[in-house]
């Protein structure tokens, strides 16, 4: 099995932890894994992405355009930004909730998040839209959006891992008091 995955969003949304969870689950199954992370200035509310490569036969930590099996988008606009990396027939899991940049709030730029979702609908066949506001409301926390998205990614069939693998990874990496919340988050998109 080999899978190329991109996680993308806005600095502070928890993409790095999600990437770590996938990597931990892959490692536990002895699947070779390489990742490249955005660390540094962009973590302060800028555009961030992680490239993950699961399986044999790759050398580069970065993935080329048109080679990605699955994009896990934490934010609509950031997902559209990464779309050129998706291969034909690849899957996209995206959170519906936009993060408005300060530049748009003060009128220096424009950002129409609904247009982003429409664009994704028009151009991605294998698309899962996660209602992040509903998830936050039902789970009582907006902080587990990353795990909600991982659950939806599982169910897209393109992650190459199963629910138990991710649950084990969560147990390894997340403090015990948040375990139940994270398990619920992982299961959220089942309904």
């Amino acid at each position: 099995m080999s899978k190329n995955i991109i996680l993308c969003g806005v600095g502070g949304q928890g993409t790095i932890l999600a990437s770590r969870l996938i990597a931990t689950a892959a490692m536990d199954k002895n699947i070779p894994i390489k990742t490249a992370e955005t660390i540094g200035m962009a973590q302060r509310g800028g555009s961030v992405f992680s490239h993950l490569r699961l399986g044999e036969g790759t050398n580069s930590p970065l993935i080329g355009k048109g080679e990605v099996d699955l994009i896990i988008g934490f934010e609509p606009g950031e997902t559209v930004r990464q779309l050129p990396f998706l291969k034909k027939g690849g899957a996209v899991v995206v959170s519906s909730r936009p993060v408005m940049p300060v530049s748009a709030m003060i009128g220096q730029s424009k950002y129409d998040a609904e247009a982003m979702i429409e664009y994704l609908k028009a151009n991605v066949e294998h698309l899962t839209i996660v209602d992040a506001d509903k998830a936050a409301e039902e789970l009582g926390s907006a902080k587990v959006l990353n795990v909600v998205l991982l659950g939806a990614a599982l169910r897209s069939g393109e992650l190459g891992l199963d629910e138990q693998d991710l649950e084990n990874a969560i147990r390894e990496k997340v403090p015990e008091k948040f375990l139940e919340l994270n398990k619920k988050a992982l299961a959220f998109s089942r309904e």
């Binding site: 606009g77 950031e78 559209v80 530049s103 220096q108 730029s109 950002y111």
Partner: peptide
């Protein structure tokens, strides 16, 4: 559509 301008 115009992508969000998102400096840190």
């Amino acid at each position: 559509p115009a992508l969000p301008v998102r400096p840190p």
